[in-house]
């Protein structure tokens, strides 16, 4: 049996120095609610940062890999994406 199968287990392998405020902002939850049946960011985000909670998008920015996929892949350009402040965010130790 392989180890670290789930995304939660994978994320435990990563070092994060999370800032106190988010660098990711869903501009309008209403667009997710009414115009985006797939909520595709909840699928393609490699860190499962985005979770839909009934009427709003929960953004777990603390686990973000800062790849930029959500900014490019959101079909409604509904995500404002910045880099975390200098020194904060993901810290890759190896690869």
């Amino acid at each position: 049996m392989m180890k670290a199968q789930t995304i939660e287990e994978k994320q435990y392998l990563v070092r994060f120095n999370a800032d106190t405020k988010s660098h990711l902002h869903v501009l309008d939850d209403n667009i997710c609610l009414t115009k985006c049946p797939d909520k595709i960011c909840t699928i393609f985000c490699p860190a499962a940062v985005y979770k839909w909670e009934d009427i709003r998008m929960h953004v777990g920015y603390e686990g973000c890999h800062e790849c930029g996929s959500c900014r490019i892949g959101c079909p409604h350009e509904n995500i404002r994406w910045e880099y975390p402040r200098g020194g904060y965010g993901i810290v890759f130790r190896l690869g």
Binding site: K3, K10, V14, G95
Partner: peptide
Amino acid sequence: IRPYIQGSEPVEYLAHL
């Protein structure tokens, strides 16, 4: 693929564009 990596221990997970 599995036989190549059998018994290994994941130590980091990374994503990038």
